[in-house]
Every structure is written in C-alpha cells, then in structure tokens.
Simulated assay, not measured.
Amino acid sequence: MTRYLALPLFLLLTVGGGGLIGMTVETGGWYAALQKPSFNPPDWVFAPVWGTLYILIGIAGWRVWRRGLRTLQKLWWLQLVLNFAWPPVFFAAHMLGAALGVILVLDFAVAAFVVAAWRIERVSALLFLPYLAWIAYATLLNAALWQLN
C-alpha cells in the first residue's frame, strides 16, 4: 500500500468508524433523562469535537504506520478498540460503571501512546494531546454521571 493511499484509509477508519458508532448507538432518550453535572457540555459540542479528534487520531495512526513503529502501532490500535468500545457500553448497555472502567483504560492507552511517541514521533504525540485532554474530561464526566445516577 502506498503511503498516500494509506492516509485516506486511516481517516476512513477513524472518522468513518467513529461516525458509524455515533449513528448506530442511541444516545437520545436515556441519556437525556440522566441527571447531569454542572460541567456537562451541550449536546451540539460532541460531534465537532469528535470529528476533529478522529481526524487527528487517523493522521497519527498513519504516521506511526508509515514509519513502521510497531510499539506505537500496537498502542494506537489498542486506544482505537477502547475508543470504539466505550459508546456501546455507556449508551447501549447503560453500564456507566463498566464504561468508566473502559475509559480509564483508554486514558492509560492514550497517555502511553503520547509518552512512547514523544521522542521518536513527536508530531503524533502532539496530535494526541487534544485527544488526551478530551478523554480526561470525558472520564470526569462519566464518573460524575455514574455517581449522580
């Protein structure tokens, strides 16, 4: 596979996969009825934030694949699996405690990627920093929702 064909495939995987999960997992009625913490963002924030993050995640995945960085590739795939697993656990199964467990492991995987990439693939590490900040916030939100409900 050429390096220029691979980038659109990585973006299709991340943006398309995230979008597909977002469209197939019902977030409306059940989530709307939950008691929310004061720092819960408005619903319209999630789509543009995740759309942007999935682009950054895809580019970072492409960069570590292109350079053949096996350890980073494994961490990248681990975070993607956990990222795609969280919405069905939280929204479809309504298992806020289990979802908190998933997102805590996701936090660790993303942080491990940033640390491991920092010296050898700094651009990919930097691309993951907004993602790390957002999922740290999402972890606090998940914990607060679990506690309140």
Rank of each mutant, 00 (worst) to 15 (best):
G97Q: 09
V123C: 08
R122Y: 07
A133N: 02
W44R: 06
V110L: 10
L11S: 03
P8E: 08
H94W: 12
R119H: 09
P37A: 01
Y4T: 04
T24P: 00
L72H: 08
A33I: 08
T14R: 00
V49M: 07
F113C: 04
L34F: 11
A85P: 00
L13I: 09
G28R: 13
L96M: 15
V114F: 07
V123Q: 10
F91A: 01
W44T: 03
R70Q: 12
A111N: 06
I103E: 10
F46D: 13
Y54S: 08
Q73P: 02
L75P: 00
A116N: 11
G18R: 10
A117S: 09
A112H: 11
L9M: 15
T2A: 05
Q73T: 14
A93P: 02
S38L: 09
L129K: 04
V115G: 02
L7M: 03
F46V: 07
R63D: 11
F128R: 07
T24F: 13
G51P: 03
F46E: 04
M1C: 08
L7T: 00
L20E: 00
Q147W: 14
G19Y: 15
A93G: 05
P8D: 05
V115R: 12
R63L: 15
R66P: 06
L145E: 10
W65V: 09
L80A: 06
W44N: 05
V49N: 08
Q73E: 14
N149H: 11
Y54E: 03
L96C: 08
A136K: 02
L129H: 02
L100P: 03
F108V: 14
L127F: 14
M95R: 15
G101F: 06
A144K: 12
I103C: 03
T27Y: 09
F91W: 11
L132G: 11
T14I: 01
L53R: 01
D107C: 09
T14N: 14
S124G: 13
T27G: 05
Y4S: 13
W134Y: 13
G97I: 06
L106K: 06
G16R: 12
F91K: 10
F90L: 10
A60R: 00
A117R: 02
L11T: 04
W65K: 02
P37E: 00
G22I: 07
L12Y: 04
F113G: 05
A6F: 09
L80G: 01
D43T: 11
S124C: 04
L20H: 05
T71P: 00
L104G: 07
T71Q: 10
A138G: 08
K36Y: 07
R119N: 08
